[in-house]
Simulated assay, not measured.
Amino acid sequence: MNEVKRYTKEQIEFIRSIAKGKPIKEITKEFNELFKSDRKQGSIRYIMSKHGIKNGLRGNPETAFKKGHVSWNNGMKGLQIGGKETQFKRGSKPITEKPDGTERFWNGWWQIKSGNEWIYKHRFIWEQAYGEIPPNHVILFKDNDKNNVTLDNLFMTTMQAKTSVAIRKLRSQYEPLNIAEHKLAELRIKVNYMEEVTINAR
């Protein structure tokens, strides 16, 4: 089957709009949730490669393990190096472990540590104030500045509206206009849906 028929322009642009800084698994999950599909990670990876879409997470080929590489400690199970006094004890925490609330800048996004996870800071702040983010919804920045991670600079919209605005290149750094464009996109999508329901009911 022709690749163009399998992925619409809207679907490809959606992948492009969310890909940066996200692993294939997460991109695939968001795609399937939005388009009510069951695409596999391999399919998403293929379409990204086909259209030159990169998430920026690929490892360095110079330092990555090569196929057939044998680790230096292969066959040395049980080998003890150093005294027992200096060995890592069960239940101990490594000195490099970060406490909850630690922030980091990772692949263009601010993240905050919560438990054993690193969570996008803007999503964390929103959920602390308003509760869990509903399915198929995203948190965006009013001024489109990902470094301005404050609650009063955030707003929630649907994935469909975000994609619609991105495809039409309507995003603005002017806060009122940016919010209005997404609200208008939400309304347009609802109207189109109701028209489709009405036509199918005839």
Rank of each mutant, 00 (worst) to 15 (best):
Glu132Pro: 07
Met159Gly: 10
Met48Arg: 04
Thr157Asn: 02
Phe124Trp: 13
Glu30Phe: 10
Lys40Cys: 09
Lys98Val: 06
Gly91Ala: 09
Asp152Val: 02
Asn136Gly: 12
Ala166Gln: 03
Lys162Arg: 12
Gly75Met: 08
Ala129Arg: 07
Lys29Val: 08
His51Tyr: 14
His182Leu: 04
Trp110Ile: 06
Ile24Lys: 04
Trp118Arg: 04
Lys67Asp: 08
Pro61Cys: 07
Ala129Gln: 11
Leu170Met: 08
Gln11Phe: 07
Ser164Glu: 13
His51Asp: 07
Lys67Met: 08
Ile189His: 06
Tyr174Ala: 08
Lys113Trp: 03
Arg58Asn: 15
Glu85Val: 13
Asn2Leu: 14
Asn60Ile: 12
Leu34Tyr: 07
Ser92Leu: 04
Ile12Tyr: 01
Thr102Val: 04
Trp126Gly: 02
Glu186Trp: 02
Arg202Tyr: 14
Lys5Cys: 11
Asn74Gly: 05
Phe31Lys: 00
Lys93Gly: 05
Glu127Asp: 13
Lys22Arg: 15
Thr8Lys: 10
His51Met: 03
Val197Asn: 07
Pro176Gln: 02
Lys77Gly: 06
Ile125Ser: 01
Gln11Cys: 09
Lys84Pro: 01
Phe88Tyr: 09
Ala161Lys: 02
Tyr130His: 15
Lys183His: 10
Phe124Arg: 04
Ile27Asp: 01
Tyr7Trp: 15
Ile179Leu: 08
Gly52Glu: 05
Pro61Thr: 05
Ala161Asp: 00
Arg168Leu: 12
Tyr174Ile: 15
Gly108Ile: 02
Ile24Tyr: 13
Lys25Arg: 15
Ala166Asn: 02
Asn116Ile: 05
Glu13Pro: 04
Leu177Ile: 06
Ser49Ala: 14
Val197His: 01
Gly52Ile: 02
Glu33Ala: 15
Lys162Gly: 03
Ser92His: 10
Phe14Ile: 05
Arg90His: 08
Thr102Gln: 10
Ser172Trp: 01
Lys113Asp: 02
Tyr46Glu: 12
Ile47His: 03
Ser114Gln: 10
Glu132Ser: 13
Thr198Cys: 03
Val138His: 03
Ala180Lys: 10
Glu30Cys: 09
Tyr130Trp: 14
Gly78Leu: 08
Phe155Glu: 02
Glu85Gly: 11
Val191His: 11
Lys36Tyr: 15
Phe14Cys: 04
Arg123Asp: 10
Lys93Arg: 15
Glu195Cys: 12
Leu34Cys: 11
Ile167Phe: 02
Lys25Met: 15
Gln80Val: 12
Ile199Met: 11
Glu30Ser: 12
Asn178Trp: 00
Tyr130Ser: 13
Thr150Gly: 11
Ile139Gln: 01
Ile125Glu: 00
Ile81Met: 13
Arg171Thr: 00
